[in-house]
Write a protein that binds this DNA or RNA. Sequence first.
DNA 1: AGGCAGTTAGTTGTGTGCAATTGAATTGTG
DNA 2: CACAATTCAATTGCACACAACTAACTGCCT
Lengths: 181, 181
Amino acid sequence: MTATPTPTTPTPAVPAPAATAPAAPAPAAEEDWLRLDHQICFSLHAASRAFNGVYRVVLKDLGLTYPQYLVMLVLWEHGDQPVKKLGEHLRLDSGTLSPLVKRLEAAGLVRRERSTRDERSVDVRLTEEGAALRGRAVQVPRRIVASTGFALDEIDALRQRLDELTTALDAAALRETPGCA
Amino acid sequence: MTATPTPTTPTPAVPAPAATAPAAPAPAAEEDWLRLDHQICFSLHAASRAFNGVYRVVLKDLGLTYPQYLVMLVLWEHGDQPVKKLGEHLRLDSGTLSPLVKRLEAAGLVRRERSTRDERSVDVRLTEEGAALRGRAVQVPRRIVASTGFALDEIDALRQRLDELTTALDAAALRETPGCA
DNA sequence: AGGCAGTTAGTTGTGTGCAATTGAATTGTG
DNA sequence: CACAATTCAATTGCACACAACTAACTGCCT
């Protein structure tokens, strides 16, 4: 350890994590905040990659990657739609979707067609093969759920928690963005 | 809207089959499983990217990306260590860490030095500048926590849940891996 | 008509993330 | 000591993810 060169006083300017539980009886020095942060962001990051890893294995049979599977889920559920709509469903921009959809097209699962009404827009349409893939995809969710070892209601509770988190973080990102303060 | 040509069934309406009960009691229309899966994997994916986005904004001041910040947290907490150890802490392999650490070196935050004991190993050492950055990093966790709008104990509960999930998923990934069945 | 603002995909550049491979260094075994 | 197996970092190839930019089109305005 390289000691702590921080000249800052150990005085926690905002020492009251108090909140709702006495998880930390002590004021939680700045050092502890970094440890805590380590835990939090690492946990989410690791969970995301672990999830990705399981999906990777399960989806290999279908020849899909995890984000590609998400796009197919949207198409199966909401039908053919332009790239813009896909991006809204998945919160992804064209920089991510354009090459991804092209790979799906190369795989023969979708077609990309310029809208005749508005030539800026590109409709993504399922091919026969893409629609048929749904039949093989229905087994995926159960295998994933089984992998977690969680009960359905536990998963749903976690999902709701994550959605709350995402909503809060998206709002915060807008506030924190330099220039939007 | 393209008039939704989806052959979607008119909502079979089978929300959540009896909670913690094992396997599939009721057939629970395969369609619903796909919808559920959509929700789950999308939620985790979105939360991960939302978290990433907030960290991106907050860490811009420090000139770090989110994964780079994770590496610095490990170095600050556990001291100088070889790439291998870093990878164990973060569950990242050399394919990810090698270029990442080189960027940290280019930024002057760390040095990479071949171990004299074992020349296969590369020690990652904090520079003065890298160690000093910790002083500016201590403000990060509070800003992140504030962004979530969650209380500390809520975050900790979520973290534990995610860790359970990661553990289960890692184990499952090993089982699912073709060739390890 | 002409022009300008807003919208939509696409492209480019940077930075992960992971599988597979390479190559050097080390260790184990006879 | 020689040789095979192992370990570790680095590299390569592919696939996201996002910021910034370009290009093309729409529609509204004067």
